[in-house]
Design a protein around this nucleic acid. Structure first.
Lengths: 168, 168
DNA sequence: TTAATTTTTCAATAAATTTTGAAAATTCAA
DNA sequence: TTGAATTTTCAAAATTTATTGAAAAATTAA
């Protein structure tokens, strides 16, 4: 397989993959393109490679920067901005965990904490089921939150390899 | 907070949560509703509670069954079908991991395996970056695949609590 | 300064996804 | 069998989300 074809395939399936994770196709494709580029790309490069408009490129590049997955670089003698993606996949995953934890898990846990003190007789079957189910989710969520914290803080890939040994 | 209000809130935020994970709002809401219901609900119950159409309810209930998160139950003396959700959150999470692994991770790994044998000089910077980045993702992916396998096979919540102790 | 280049914004448009509801198919009691 | 109850399907409509492109804003070299 030729490099250009392989790149195409990678970009396209990374884009499809993203849509299963609440990330829009274009954002995932830009990320994929930068992941496999040896050198920084400008917004125009990206527009051309992916056949997308200026506004679309700009918006999604910015979003990738907000997520901490891409950064701007200034090339000497160039007026344009260029962009590169972090290529160490473990760092990428850590960054995504960090952001999603903050954006999704933590707000959900705050809500669950509130829902705990629902009025009513604990002997009522409906009340009991609600309290127990929500309580279980809350407990699981807090435990996951702590575990993810450790993952995010881990400096190296030691987490997964430690796990591997742990389970053997 | 009243039970009905708490239920409403839980359903609504579980729905919003789902949309960040590539799951449609209604499917997540039906799941939430069943999670906090003490007794099985019929399709009509669900339609009424969530104010959705028959077709919509039917389609999303079926999808939840495909995901292994909900099951049909037949109530004695009733002609209609009723539905219940697995309430043990650890089992729910394991089931989701199992399905997403099969539907998303495994196909991606098969593609990455193919992309590995790209033609071209390994000294070419573009080729090198591609091979290394994709290789890194592949390695990470396979490792994650094995770890998730262990999680799915784990019978009880011992996984997270073991982790907790492991990291202390 | 000025003016060319580049980035950002955002209303309009397009595309994708979800929802509806009525009709068809299926199930099941009698 | 029949027919009422229930489930399923699916084309059309509604809604949501993504994309465009042109205009405005910002940046920078001279």
């Amino acid at each position: 397989m030729k490099l250009s074809e392989a790149k195409q395939q990678f970009i396209s399936s990374w884009g499809a993959f993203g849509t299963h994770w609440g990330i829009n196709r274009t954002m995932a494709q830009i990320h994929a393109l930068l992941l496999v580029s040896a050198s920084p790309l400008s917004q125009d490069n990206i527009m051309e490679e992916l056949n997308i408009s200026r506004g679309n490129a700009n918006m999604n590049i910015r979003e990738l920067i907000n997520w901490g997955l891409v950064e701007r670089v200034l090339l000497p003698g160039e007026r344009k901005e260029f962009f590169v993606a972090e290529k160490d996949i473990w760092k990428v995953v850590r960054q995504i965990i960090k952001e999603r934890k903050k954006r999704e898990l933590e707000p959900m846990l705050r809500l669950l904490d509130q829902l705990e003190d629902v009025e009513g007789d604990r002997k009522d079957k409906e009340v009991k089921t609600f309290v127990e189910t929500v309580g279980g989710i809350k407990k699981f969520g807090h435990q996951a939150d702590r575990t993810l914290d450790l993952m995010v803080r881990a400096e190296e890939n030691w987490f997964l390899s430690a796990l591997g040994k742990f389970f053997k």
